[in-house]
């Protein structure tokens, strides 16, 4: 099933405690910068893969099993988060 980066919101919130759908990320493949919600996401019973909408480089992989979730970030060379106020 092909969806988009909006569908990653729950997984990433669970893993990192942040809603990253509106965050910009840099693709390690093409160096393009895009909002995470615009990534091409494929959901299968084996896991979830997010690809760069511009160059199809794999940005994020998610595999769940045995009560654990593995989040791979093989293709994100940077991601934007709100500045942390100290």
């Amino acid at each position: 099933m092909q969806v988009d980066g909006n569908a990653l919101a729950g997984i990433l919130e669970d893993g990192f405690g942040l809603d990253l759908t509106g965050s910009r990320g840099r693709c390690a493949g093409c160096s393009g910068i895009a909002v995470l919600a615009t990534a091409v996401v494929v959901v299968t019973p084996m896991g979830t893969v997010a690809r760069c909408a511009a160059c199809e480089h794999v940005l994020i992989t998610v595999v769940t099993g045995g009560g654990r979730t593995w989040i791979g970030l093989p293709g994100l060379s940077a991601i934007e988060v709100s500045a942390i106020e100290v």
């Binding site: 980066g5 909006n6 919101a9 729950g10 919130e13 669970d14 809603d19 759908t21 509106g22 909002v35 995470l36 919600a37």
Partner: peptide, 9 residues
């Protein structure tokens, strides 16, 4: 349920 999610939209 898990949410609310998706600040982008």
């Amino acid at each position: 349920l898990h949410g609310p999610l998706g600040r982008y939209f």
